[in-house]
């Protein structure tokens, strides 16, 4: 089955972007876009609507955490998932304080990504009901 939801992947490593794209495609998400840095991501966000943003933390330019803050200023509702190797509880806490919806630690298993997408779907369906 295929989902129409637009997903934006933000990561400075091309290999990482491709890997995640592949995993997402495996879950039925084909409408996936990417950006290599926070600035580009924010520009894209201003231009288009996205349902999910997968955000790396450690990037050149503005960091993922900073991007997250700015992104929240732009869009309160977009589902943002941090995808980072920085898995310290401190980071997680900070990300949650900045309004993140999920946190995936690299290296991730497909199951983790799947769970996160489930969480997104659940939220969407609850939102529909509400």
């Amino acid at each position: 089955m295929a989902y129409k939801d637009r997903i934006l992947i933000v990561d400075d490593v091309a290999l990482m972007r491709d890997l995640l794209k592949g995993v997402l495609r495996g879950f039925g998400y084909d409408n996936v876009h990417d950006a290599s840095c926070g600035e580009d991501a924010l520009k894209l966000m201003q231009r288009d609507n996205f349902s999910i943003v997968m955000l790396d933390i450690n990037m050149p330019g503005i960091s993922g955490m900073k991007t997250l803050q700015k992104l929240r200023e732009l869009d309160h509702d977009v589902f943002v998932v941090m995808v980072s190797a920085h898995s310290s509880a401190e980071n997680v806490k900070q990300a949650i304080e900045n309004g993140v919806d999920g946190f995936i630690v690299k290296p991730y298993t497909q199951k983790k990504v799947g769970e996160m997408l489930e969480k997104y779907r659940r939220r969407v369906s609850v939102g529909d009901v509400g």
Partner: peptide, 12 residues
């Protein structure tokens, strides 16, 4: 706190 963080970060 740990449970809250985990649930907030999407761990199910």
């Amino acid at each position: 706190e740990a449970v809250e963080l985990l649930r907030a970060s999407g761990c199910c």
